[in-house]
Design a protein around this nucleic acid. Structure first.
Lengths: 154, 154
DNA sequence: TGAGATTCCATTGACGCCCATGTTTTCCCA
DNA sequence: TGGGAAAACATGGGCGTCAATGGAATCTCA
């Protein structure tokens, strides 16, 4: 399954096009249709992104493991599907981010693609910087607890 | 699984390329894609290094669907994924260390690859020397405790 | 017939691949 | 056991390819 790693800052041109980083495209190369799925983050001024398979999985887990999910979780899944956009990239690997999505993340000139493992996010570079700084502080504060939860490499 | 042992100091050429020590490459020979994963250490002016399997495991261990809605819990994972780089080595076994990563470890001319068991680190040789010295002092100070925790040889 | 969207083409710069060289280690055989 | 051949590894540089980006041309729908 797709793995999104690293951070890439790409330019948004006058027409609103952005290149999806080549490694991200490669990670999704086996998917149909060719493209990405985006929806506004519920917790931050950012865009959540993933492959089609992630939505597939979300749909499956909602129905199959119904009991495991709280009603709130189910509501969130509904929100995700309704606010998602499937974006196909053009022959050069660029997508057009919808107006409302851009506005939600305050993106104008540049877009930072941030790998998060099975998913990724798209940020306005400056906003990402301050957000990362806070996350780093929190992580260092919680370091003892978090360290315990880091998967052991076998 | 991969095991990284010993220390190797290699040159960083004008293009920013460094040879990954042959024993380290051999330890990762069964992985796909062929290369290493690096990210800045959170506690030292050094680079953390590992194989792809480390990230795979990190991604798998966190149930993807839940992470989107619990910001505090996956701070560390997010930091790792976003600041990591997958570096494939060329036919000669060299990788290009990204600018930001080099800066974090103050590496310019030489890079010291330090085996740490399941992972490894990359240091600026002088910084490694002083760091090792301090580690030695601490270890001697804590010697009684450490001795007690050393597994018994049967 | 315009405005927006999609496809196509051109440019530039970075990165990956290839070949060459020097040095060290290993191996083989006299 | 010593010397020479061969392999493995680290290193340097040239060059082709591809990704990111900008803009023009074509298309489509109101």
């Amino acid at each position: 399954m797709a793995l999104f790693v690293s951070t890439f800052v790409n330019k948004v041109d006058r027409k609103g096009r952005v290149s999806v980083p080549a490694p991200f495209r490669a990670a999704l190369s086996n998917q149909m249709p060719q493209g990405i799925v985006v929806f506004p983050s519920f917790t931050a001024a950012a865009i959540e992104g993933c492959g089609n398979d992630f939505l597939e999985q979300l749909a499956t887990s909602t129905t199959a493991a119904f009991d495991l999910f709280s009603p709130e979780q189910d509501d969130l899944n509904t929100l995700i599907f309704s606010s998602s956009h499937q974006l196909a990239w053009d022959p050069e690997g660029r997508v057009m981010l919808p107006e409302e999505i851009l506005a939600h993340a305050n993106i104008t000139e540049q877009a930072a693609f941030v790998g998060k493992g099975r998913t990724f996010q798209i940020w306005e570079p400056q906003a990402l910087k301050s957000h990362t700084e806070e996350a780093r502080k929190r992580a260092l504060q919680n370091r003892p607890q978090i360290a315990l939860r880091t998967p052991e490499v076998k």
